[in-house]
Amino acid sequence: MTIAFFTMDISFNEYHLIFPRIIIGALIILAVALLLQKGIQLLKRKEKRPKPFRFFSENYDAKKFYATLVLLVLYPPALSLFGFLPASILFMFLITILYAGQFNKKTIIVSISNSLASSIAVWYVFGQLFDITLP
């Protein structure tokens, strides 16, 4: 691809690269501009120490956060392994109890009913009535 003054040599074999090249170019220019902007900002307030970058918010809930991630990642393989209903009921139960935050009679009942009701309802309405292909 060459760009002469206002004309572009385009060939069929390279149709798929024309636009990505332009976009990558634009991304690089914007990234450089962003860095410059940040740099100028830093120079301007030289005396003040820049706030260190924090990824997590203060006192973040590590248990809920990582458990959510783990459950989310395990759910799709479980779907292929156990089928829609068992996997969903289990997943829904675990995640509800996780978010409820306590492990007592009330939360267990809530979690079980939430997981059963929603999984079965989805399975019946979408899988059976609407005949959608479920995971």
């Binding site: 059963l116 009701a117 929603s118 309802a121 989805v122 019946y124 309405v125 009535l129």
Partner: peptide, 16 residues
């Protein structure tokens, strides 16, 4: 019946 089932979705359980 589809519409009805969908409405019942919130309350869950449905008979086969």
């Amino acid at each position: 019946s589809m519409g009805f089932m969908l409405a019942a979705c919130g309350t869950g359980d449905s008979g086969g």
